[in-house]
């Protein structure tokens, strides 16, 4: 399968933060969700992918091309949505369109009009009067109006109310049904991923924790609940991390079938949410340290 985004051993350090030997790939034609807490390096990674930051070391290739030689070519094929307003606030959407359309060789006014109508966006109101939801829809409209093959979004759903969020995700859903696009977006709202993500990349403290298919997560991971007496040195090894309480233990495993084999009916096995996985994986990393 073709990779649209490829980061290999990327290092980037700032004062008080470091992306360490970070490698990841995003596959063509799928939706990949990029999850992690606040300040763990999601935006830094997206800025590196957008060439807004340059890595200290390591390589980044988009569509198999590098930014050094193919910057404009790559950017022609990317649509982007950031979590804050990046447009000129004192302009209207029509004026903004006039400025941005000149940058893209594939700009399509019909597509622009289609999304403006679909999102019920005002064309002649100043952008600074837009609500957060309208802002996101305007960004997405512009991102989708030049037939981009890759859509990169940094926390597009944060700050949106639940109805808006559903609408936004629906648009992405429809987009994936009809066209051969690749979507990569970061979020810390893990329920966003349940409905649309094919792949999930988990980052924590500047390190890549895992990349997995959503279905694979469902097959492999499980939340296990049982009596504390069941835990000993051997059984503990099967868990990523364990939380004990007076009522027993609750733990995350990445090997569901093995647990079923080991404990049978003695434990309760539940489907984990992505939030559970994030929580226990993070805890586990601290635990092992």
């Amino acid at each position: 399968m073709e990779n649209v985004i490829e980061l290999r051993n990327v290092n980037k350090s700032f004062k008080g933060f470091q992306l360490k030997d970070f490698s990841m790939t995003v596959k063509k034609g799928f939706v990949t969700g990029f999850i992690g807490g606040n300040g763990v390096g999601k935006s830094t990674t997206i800025n590196l992918i957008m060439n807004l930051l340059q890595p200290d070391s390591g390589t980044i290739s988009i569509f198999g091309l590098n930014y050094k030689q193919h910057e404009k070519e790559i950017k022609q094929r990317i649509g982007f949505v950031f979590d804050d307003n990046i447009f000129y606030e004192h302009l209207t959407l029509t004026e903004m369109r006039r400025i941005i359309k000149r940058a893209y060789s594939n700009w399509d006014d019909n597509l622009f009009r289609y999304y403006v109508e679909q999102f019920e966006l005002p064309l002649n109101k100043k952008i600074k009067t837009f609500s957060k939801g309208m802002m996101m829809k305007a960004s997405l409209t512009i991102a989708l109006s030049h037939h981009a093959e890759l859509i990169v979004m940094d926390e597009p759903t944060s700050g949106l109310d639940p109805v808006f969020r559903r609408e936004f995700l629906d648009v992405l859903h429809r987009l994936m049904e009809n066209e051969d696009k690749t979507i990569f977006f970061s979020t810390h709202i893990t329920t966003d991923l349940d409905s649309i993500a094919d792949y999930i990349i988990f980052i924590d403290k500047g390190q890549h924790i895992f990349t997995k298919e959503s279905t694979q997560i469902e097959e492999e991971y499980a939340i296990v609940k049982g009596e504390t007496e069941l835990l000993d040195a051997d059984t503990k090894k099967e868990f990523i991390s364990i939380r004990k309480s007076n009522h027993g233990f609750e733990a995350l495993t990445a090997n569901k079938s093995r647990i079923e084999e080991m404990f049978g009916q003695m434990v309760l096995i539940e489907k984990p949410s992505i939030e559970d996985i994030m929580f226990y994986t993070k805890k586990g990393a601290e635990w092992h340290v």
Binding site: E71, K72, I86
Partner: peptide, 18 residues
Amino acid sequence: AKDEDSAVNKLLNSLPYT
């Protein structure tokens, strides 16, 4: 001054310009 805002710089550098 109109282009000085960091958000606008983000826009200009995400568009196909070097």
